[in-house]
């Protein structure tokens, strides 16, 4: 009978193990050290795709017609895909503003019209060094953008170090982006 009794305990034990895993995963999500939005990217460790885009005209800024990624070589760079039509992009605006003091940010307006992008920047602030217009989203495909907002961290040589899908928050900056940036030695 004791063997029978033991087999009746098995489901409970199996469940306990599963629940423990779930609890750990949830706990680390709560702490911010794990983020389900952080999807694996094939780009990590590889040079960022060549990117030349029409430049969004802004006052007191560069008057060139286009902007390329290579302009930013020699310093770590954040590449941020955003759009005026995307609600989470509004959410991440303050966080981007904050981190723009530490690192240059190249904004790529994804499937957006210049008027709308300009209005968005006026409303929510402009943390970007330059903004490229990816009007048909083809550039996004090359980068493998999952959805806006999405952010990539590039090192001095333009190699992708990190990818974050979803809005940037204070927790993401402190726990993910800043440590990676410190590893790059800036």
């Amino acid at each position: 009978m004791s063997k029978v009794r033991l087999s009746f305990l098995l489901p409970l034990l199996a469940f306990a193990v599963l629940a423990l895993f779930g609890a750990i995963a949830l706990y680390s999500t709560l702490l911010g050290s794990r983020d389900p939005a952080q999807l694996p990217s094939v780009l990590v460790g590889k040079p960022a795709p060549q990117t030349t885009l029409p430049r969004l005209r802004q006052q007191d800024h560069n008057n060139e017609n286009s902007v390329t990624l290579t302009e930013f070589r020699g310093q770590p760079l954040l590449v941020n895909f955003f759009a005026s039509w995307c609600a989470p992009c509004r959410v991440e605006a303050p966080a981007l503003e904050m981190i723009s003091k530490n690192i240059a940010i190249f904004g790529i307006a994804y499937k957006d019209r210049s008027e709308d992008t300009a209005e968005f920047l006026q409303q929510f602030g402009n943390p970007f060094q330059a903004i490229g217009m990816d009007i048909d989203g083809r550039n996004g495909i090359r980068w493998g953008v999952y959805g806006v907002p999405e952010t990539y961290l590039l090192d001095r040589d333009g190699v992708v170090v990190l990818r974050h899908a979803g809005p940037i928050t204070r927790g993401i900056i402190d726990n993910t982006i800043m440590p990676a940036l410190e590893d790059l030695g800036s």
């Binding site: 029978v4 009794r5 009746f8 469940f15 306990a16």
Partner: peptide, 14 residues
């Protein structure tokens, strides 16, 4: 919802 019934099962199931 799962743990208590399974504990009950381990106890009463036999």
């Amino acid at each position: 919802a799962v743990g208590i019934p399974l504990a009950l099962y381990a106890w009463r199931g036999p």
